[in-house]
Amino acid sequence: MIKKTARIINKLGLHARPSAILVTATTRFKSEFFFSKDDLRVNGKSIMGVMMLAAEMGSQLVVEADGPDEEEAMAEILRVIASGFGENT
C-alpha cells in the first residue's frame, strides 16, 4: 500500500467533471483507491464518494493505492490531479 498527498489546483475544485475524470482514471487500475480529506475517507472508484469530498481548490487530499499495480496507478492519479483535470488553474 502506498500513501501520498496531493493538492487540488484547478480553480473550480473537484466538481462533477473532474470527479468523473478522476474516477474514470482510478477504475482503469486493479488497485484499490481511497481518498481522504479531513475526517472523510472515500472509495476512489466511486464518483459519489469523490463528489462527497467537496474538495475545493487548494484542499489537500490523501491518496491511498493498494494492489498489484499500485506504483503505476499512484503515479498516474497524481499526474491527473496535478494536471488540474485540463481546467483553469
Partner: peptide, 21 residues
C-alpha cells in the same frame, strides 16, 4: 447523506453537484 455534505459546502461549485446527483 451524500448531498447534505455537498449542500453544506461553502463552495458554490460543490453545491451545484447536488443537481446532477
Amino acid at each position: 447523506k451524500t448531498t447534505l455534505q455537498l449542500k453544506n459546502s461553502p463552495d458554490q461549485y460543490m453545491r451545484q453537484m447536488v443537481q446532477d446527483i
